[in-house]
Design a protein around this nucleic acid. Structure first.
Lengths: 195, 195
DNA sequence: CCGCTCAGTCAACAGACGCTTACAAGCCGT
DNA sequence: ACGGCTTGTAAGCGTCTGTTGACTGAGCGG
């Protein structure tokens, strides 16, 4: 966290990251269409024009949010066994960030209206579902099991979504521990090959 | 449905309904912020200004969509046993409408940015969760079971959401029958009092 | 057949939107 | 220290947004 550099007053990489962070919060919280580039720039404390400079456009910024979020999730996930999956999902859904918003997951569920970004989103979702199905013994062509994996993914996203903005207690403030039990039951019940 | 009146050329009630129908499709498909009043009016085949006339504002129209959608779901739901719940949810998620979009459910997950509409949404979600928990023997104060019911609701919404716009096969085009099995497993595994 | 009422039309508003351009200021190698 | 490249600023562009108010014409009681 504490960078060795003496924090240059003008630092392109730092500014880029500030924009990226602010954008992820806004996009996850308010959605793509409801977020304006001026909101993001103000949150980041930089000039609006720098969004166009560093990300070419609002859509480019959204794509960057999506890809970095996905990278982080991939890094956090690694390879897992079926038994570990509920804990991994509970971690993500509980929100590893300070404000408890599971941004990575929410970003995956929100559509942007941007074709390119939506393609990325769907590709990621597809790969997640196939990974999960694979852990349960899925082989290509087995639509039944793949459907079940996708339903499990969808359920996780729904939980993350409902936690992110909706003050629906006790779900909204449930801890990772609280979610683990129900999620384990959900995954093991839904993702089964003996459909 | 078939009104006795011979369809007057200028019919306020009919126009209002046309706007309501078009708005529900748009809001569910594209979200609140990404939908413009001109889109809705064009879909309904009426003039834009009539939205302000009949619903006071775009937000007023969204609120009307929510309340009517909720009414329809209440009417369709009625009283049910726990065993019937998966089928009811599968019906809604599969989409009883012609285009297969589960509008009612999706509307409940999409937020508008409008405070009043969000309050309605949350109230509905809370009542659904309590109903579902009640079927499993929930008594006030049992947060564990209520949490599980809310997770089941969230899962259903996530499925509906992912089906609505995302071409994620086989989930996107799964039929009510396809969903019934996995959903039954999900509900019965998640909504249990012996947590 | 007249005249009032109300459903629907039209054009325009003020503001916000994403984005671009021209310019000022900082950083670094030499 | 100074030139050249990079980083940040300010202003404005064209467009689209939700909403409004004055208008036209259909419908119906008299």
């Amino acid at each position: 966290m504490t960078s060795p550099a003496p924090a240059r007053r003008r630092d392109a990489a730092r500014t880029r990251q500030l924009l990226l962070d602010a954008a992820r919060v806004r996009f996850a919280q308010d959605g793509y269409a409801a977020t304006t580039v001026r909101d993001i720039a103000d949150d980041a404390g930089v000039n609006v024009a720098l969004i166009s400079r560093y990300f070419r456009s609002k859509e480019g910024l959204f794509e960057a949010c999506l890809t970095t979020a996905v990278d982080e999730m991939r890094r956090a996930a690694g390879s897992a066994t079926l038994a570990e999956v509920p804990r991994r999902i509970a971690e993500q859904a509980a929100g590893i960030d300070s404000d408890g918003i599971p941004r990575q997951l929410v970003l995956l569920l929100r559509s942007s209206g941007d074709t390119r970004a939506d393609e990325i989103r769907i590709g990621i979702l597809r790969s997640y579902a196939e990974n999960l199905a694979g852990l349960a013994g899925w082989t290509e062509g087995d639509d039944k099991l793949l459907l079940r994996a996708q339903i499990a993914i969808a359920a996780s996203l729904g939980i993350a979504m409902l936690r992110s903005k909706t003050p629906l207690e006790p779900l909204a403030s449930a801890t990772e521990q609280d979610l683990l039990g129900p999620l384990s039951d959900l995954i093991s019940a839904v993702v089964r090959s003996d459909a």
